[in-house]
Amino acid sequence: MQQTSDNRYRLRARTFTCMGTVISLTVPADTQKAPGAAEEELEAATAVVERLFTELDATFSLYRPDSEASRLARGELVLHDASAQMRARYEEAAGWRLLTEGAFTPERPDGALDLSGLVKGHAIKEAGTSLRALGLADWCVNAGGDVLVSGSPTPGSGESWRAGIVDPADRRTLLAGFPLGGAAPEGSGSGAFASDGGGKAALATSGSAERGDHIWSVAAGASEFRQVSVAAADVVTADVLATAIVAGGTPVLHRATALWDIEVLAVRRGGDLLATPGFRR
């Protein structure tokens, strides 16, 4: 049974560059469909996702002098007069700042507005909404190491997507794995995958090892954690909390696991691990 369905679907991936990183879209292509049909569908879906990322980057990037975010940061524009989506993201970020008691903040230490900690997660979330609107049920979006999935790599099987988490000490090896998505197929009864970690669809990782420039430590000095991975039902929550835990250390880690339905794998500076039960084998 398993072998048959494995042979029917073959994973196909497309990538594009945006927000300073590479975004990958992976879908299981049905080999029983007409040749090229699956590729066309994937190309079209990738184009939609890429446009979405590009538009958000054009608005929110602080690396683009002409972006709305840059004009805000320079004080040429005040938030009150900013676009609706800029104000919406600011409001969202300010909400997260309250919820994380300041560990996540939409402002740089110099006071400039910086929504980059939120925008990538938001872009991934919007990409997921678009893919569903296109009628795609099974896919995996990976934006520079933050992952959101839907369905299964083997459609109809209920099988989870298997995500690996890189070892920050050796990026060629995996530190751990985590199953994402993979609900029981519709109409096939219930309970088959009840113990798959709650079927969390998103996995986000923040680190201070690489490109930690949007993470500002609450306490001065280096973060206590080298890398923090958070699995959650939605990608913005996972992304924000991973960022907040790196910034705020153990107190924020415990606050986050107490308040949100998440699984966390944290790597301390010395390489020691902290994990919630969902990351235990």
């Binding site: 590479v22 992976t26 990976n142 190491g145 997507w161 690996g164 201070s208 696991t257």
Partner: peptide
């Protein structure tokens, strides 16, 4: 849902040949 110290051998394992996607701190292009 407390995050407790854990040995590497106790963590859910994954081999790179066996995963469909890889998570990690944001990689540059």
């Amino acid at each position: 849902n407390y995050a407790a110290p854990i040995l590497r051998s106790e963590v859910l394992q994954a081999q790179s040949a066996d995963v469909q996607t890889v998570g990690g701190a944001t990689v540059t292009s």
